[in-house]
Design a protein around this nucleic acid. Structure first.
Lengths: 213, 213
DNA sequence: TAGATTGTTAATCGATTAACAATC
DNA sequence: TAGATTGTTAATCGATTAACAATC
C-alpha cells in the first residue's frame, strides 16, 4: 500500500483553496490557473500544484483547472461531500456564536446537540436547539450518527468533557479551551486558541519596535 | 545586528508554554523541567529548550526553570508585559463572544471599542461597551492608543473593514472572516478560521475510514 | 562525587521552491 | 506551430531531533 503522508499544512491550504474556488464558482468563473489560486489565497503557484498532486491530476496542461470540478474534488478530499453532525458542549457566548456561525453550515457542518451542565442554561434555546443536560448526549450521538464534538467550555472543565465525549463514541474533537487535553490513541483532536494568534501579533509589534532602537 | 529569525511555530508554542506556566504558578509549583513542560503541552523536551534558546538562557543546569521567572520572561517576549487595547468590528454573535471572552482579559487584552455599520446594532450594549458607528473609530483609536484590530464581520465586508482600520492607523489585524485580505506592506495580519481545523478532522476521519478498505 | 538537566551543535527530517519536460 | 500551464523531479531551505558537553 502506498502510504503517502500528507502534510497537515497541505490539508489546511486545501480547505482554503476549496473556499476560494466556491467564491470563483459563485462569480461564474469557470477556469482558473494555479497562479490565480496562489494569488487569491496568498501562497506560491508551485505550492498549489504540489498540494493538489498528493491526490491526483486535476488540471489540463496549457489550460488550468475547471473551477467547478476542482471545487468538488477538493471538497471530496476533505470529506465535505457529506454532511457532518456536530455535538457542542458549552452553551456560553462562544457556544452561542458557534451555533449560529454561517461558516459551518455552508461547509456541510450542522450542530445537532448543545449540552451544558449549568442548570440555568439547560432548557434554553440556541437557534433551533434546546440546551440539554450532559446525560442526553449518548442518545443524541446515536440518533444523528455524530462523530465529532466541539468543546466550548472553560479550561478547567474541558478534560472532563472530552473524556465523556470519547466514552460516548466521538472520534474527533475540536477544542476551543486553551488547555492541552489528554486523549486515548486514535482520537483526533485539534485546538483553536483564540488568543494565540493575537500573541503572535503582539510579539511581532514588539519586535518591530525593537528594531527601531 | 544579529538578525535571528524566530520561526512562527516557536512563537505559537511560547504562547502555549506561557499559559501552562501560569497554571503551574497558580498551583504553587515553583520549579519545572523542559521535560515537564513538554509533557504538559505535548511537544518534545528538546523543542522546549530550543524555543527558549532563541531568546536567552532562562534555566539552571541540573535543576530546571523557575516557574515564576520563566512565566514572566515568556510573557515579556510575547509583549504581554503591557496591556493591549483592541478595536473590534462586527457586533454579531462572534463579536459578542469575543467581547466577553475571558481568555483575552487574562492575557492583558482589552476590547475598547466595538463597531458595526448595522443601524439595528449601533447603540446597543455589549458587556460595558456601546456599539458605535464606524465613523467613531478614529477617535477611539486615538483615545486608547490602539494598534490592533479584530475583524468579526462576514467575508464580503472584511476587506472594506481592514482598509478602514489601516487608514486609521491600526498596525495589526486579527481576522475571523474566512477570506484572504490584501494589506499594505508592514501591516501584520493573522487569520483565525473557525472551520479549517474542523475540515482537518473530517479529512482525517475520511482517511482513517479509507484505510479499513 | 553522582545524578540531573540545561544549552547548543550537528544530524536528520520534511516541506517549499525552482525548474523544466510534458502536453494542451 | 507558438504560447501557456500543468505535473513532477531535484535542489534548497528551514525546522525538529538526538546527542552530549557544561554545569548545577
Amino acid at each position: 500500500m502506498k502510504t503517502l503522508r500528507v502534510p497537515e499544512a497541505t490539508v489546511t491550504r486545501l480547505s482554503v483553496y476549496s473556499r476560494f474556488l466556491e467564491r470563483l464558482d459563485r462569480n461564474g468563473i469557470t477556469t482558473v490557473s494555479s497562479g490565480e489560486i496562489a494569488e487569491g489565497v496568498g501562497v506560491s503557484p508551485a505550492q498549489v500544484r504540489k498540494d493538489l498532486a498528493y491526490f491526483g491530476e486535476f488540471g489540463t496542461r496549457g489550460v488550468g483547472y475547471n473551477v467547478k470540478d476542482l471545487m468538488r474534488y477538493t471538497k471530496k478530499i476533505l470529506g465535505l461531500d457529506q454532511n457532518w453532525p456536530l455535538i457542542l458542549v458549552g452553551a456560553g457566548n462562544l457556544g452561542y456564536a458557534l451555533c449560529t456561525y454561517k461558516g459551518f453550515n455552508s461547509r456541510g457542518f450542522q450542530i445537532v446537540g448543545v449540552f451544558d451542565n449549568d442548570l440555568t442554561k439547560i432548557g434554553k434555546k440556541i437557534a433551533e436547539l434546546e440546551v440539554l443536560p450532559m446525560e442526553k448526549m449518548p442518545e443524541v450521538i446515536e440518533k444523528h450518527g455524530a462523530r465529532i464534538g466541539i468543546v466550548a467550555v472553560p479550561p478547567r472543565a474541558a478534560q472532563e468533557v472530552v473524556d465523556y465525549m470519547v466514552k460516548n463514541g466521538l472520534e474527533a474533537i475540536l477544542n476551543f479551551a486553551p488547555v492541552a487535553l489528554n486523549l486515548p490513541e486514535g482520537i483526533e483532536i485539534r485546538n483553536v486558541d483564540l488568543s494565540v494568534k493575537l500573541e503572535i501579533l503582539t510579539f511581532n509589534l514588539g519586535f518591530k519596535s525593537a528594531q527601531h532602537l
